[in-house]
Design a protein around this nucleic acid. Structure first.
Lengths: 146, 146
DNA sequence: GTTAGTTGGACTATATTAGTCCTATACGTA
DNA sequence: TACGTATAGGACTAATATAGTCCAACTAAC
């Protein structure tokens, strides 16, 4: 089972790519971004659209147009990007919205799962795009590679 | 997005139900278990089968037959049950098996995600069926109910 | 020997996710 | 000011993964 969906992964790449272009403070075209990050152009369009709806990026149409981050790097968390693509973080349906599970009162698992979910949100909310963009690669997993 | 699948939820219920019958130290029929835990009988069969394949429960056929936990309550973790139903815990495909992602070397997200995955496994591995069975209900979420 | 009740496996339907295509819009250029 | 090009945005289709059902084989009590 995968928790992060493939599209979420693409979205993260795109955001990191965007972050790295931020210094030029001009708009970056989706086409360039998609190429750099090895994401299908069409799919990138769709994802950028979602990120735009969530106000994480600002768009600019026409030739020379493209996207730009709408906030500072340190103000965008990993959690936000994830939730834009795959909805609110939820370990179980029961926890998604109060009263969703009629067994809530007798469920012994709910408490533990709820606690874990809280911790996950906290962790992911604490990682900023700034950190991600600064990190050149997964050096800490060296040796684990092919 | 849900991380715990519906079937996983059912499996957890069934295991907790089984745990609560453990005192009688006789086998419990799937039919009874399914009724008690409000899971479709057929579906319960399927899940018990998976739990059996994973050696978490022992089976006994024929009339008066049924299932029984094959280990002590404290020796079965939440993580084990989850992984039986939905496979190894994996936040992302990249992490499922080494070398699965050709971008591993340049991926800035991988490290963070890997760390979170480790923490999750640790947490879930630490919760035992004993704890769950003892916990009568989600008292800690009182007020959040319907 | 028969029968009721069970486990176990194969199959089908459904829901979710991924990916593609098309249209409308905006800007730069002639 | 009109045109052309490159973009954003939305609708649709295909693929995949999950949930659920059905049927067959087996076992032990009666």
């Amino acid at each position: 089972m995968d928790i992060l969906r493939r599209n979420t992964d693409y979205a993260l790449r795109l955001m990191v790519g965007l972050a790295r272009h931020q210094e030029n403070n001009g708009s970056v075209s989706t086409r360039l971004l998609a190429e750099e990050q090895e994401v299908s152009y069409q799919l990138a369009c769709k994802l950028m659209q979602q990120l735009h709806d969530a106000r994480l990026v600002a768009s600019c149409m026409g030739p020379k147009g493209g996207f730009r981050l709408s906030r500072r790097l340190a103000e965008i968390s990993l959690l936000e990007i994830i939730e834009v693509v795959q909805g609110p973080l939820s370990l179980n349906r029961c926890l998604a919205k109060a009263g969703a599970c009629p067994r809530a009162g007798v469920c012994p698992v709910r408490g533990k799962i709820g606690e874990l979910q809280g911790r996950m949100g906290e962790y992911l909310g604490g990682v900023t795009l700034e950190e991600l963009a600064a990190n050149p690669g997964a050096k800490e997993t060296a040796g684990e590679r092919t």
